[in-house]
């Protein structure tokens, strides 16, 4: 099998730009990256599918011999429609997050959630569990006899 160098280079460029854009914080940029990567992937299927030819429509004439492979075309057709659906869905997500978070002029860029976390916050997460553990330790410790305490007056201890 051979392929067109032009298409390979074009696909690499689309992937490179798409991924670079996709790695940004703005959701719109992520979506733009996603669409570029989508096109690049269709291109990948196209270029490994073999040489171009006549449309895969049976005419009963000699052109049927040079027909392009229909298999990858079906894959790509499905991919195009699904891409469209996902794009619309992400757009709805973008709008929703912008509206809900009241981001206003910030647009749709989202900060990392945990960059500002301190170790005190981490500790606080486990407070409930630690308290439970400490409570049962206390119950057990309370029951230990210490003979120098006056055991006739337990009221004072408790």
């Amino acid at each position: 099998m051979t392929a067109s160098a032009t298409l390979i280079i074009l696909m690499a460029v689309l992937y490179a730009v798409g991924i670079t854009v996709m790695l940004e914080r703005s959701l719109t940029r992520v979506l733009i990256g996603f669409m570029l990567v989508g096109n690049a992937t269709n291109l990948l299927i196209l270029l490994v599918s073999g040489p171009s030819g006549s449309a895969p429509i049976v005419t009963g004439t000699a052109t049927d011999e040079s027909m392009a492979d229909p298999v990858p075309q079906v894959l790509m057709l499905t991919a195009i429609v699904i891409n469209f659906g996902i794009t619309a869905f992400v757009l709805a997500l973008i709008y929703r997050s912008w509206w809900l978070a009241q981001l206003g002029d910030q647009g749709d860029s989202v900060p990392d959630q945990h960059t500002e976390d301190t170790s005190a916050q981490t500790e606080a997460t486990f407070d409930a569990v630690d308290l439970d553990d400490a409570a049962i330790q206390q119950v057990l410790a309370d029951s230990d006899e210490h003979p120098d305490d006056d055991e006739k007056e337990p009221e004072k201890r408790s």
């Binding site: 690499a12 854009v21 940004e24 914080r25 703005s26 002029d105 647009g107």
Partner: peptide
């Protein structure tokens, strides 16, 4: 949404992103 896309990335990160992107492009080729 606002017309301009908010850009708050440091140039260092931009370089990292571009590197990852180009690497992916090459590997896909």
């Amino acid at each position: 949404l606002p017309t301009r896309i908010a850009q708050r990335n440091k140039p260092v990160k931009r370089l990292v992103r571009a590197t990852i992107g180009i690497a992916v492009g090459l590997i896909m080729a």
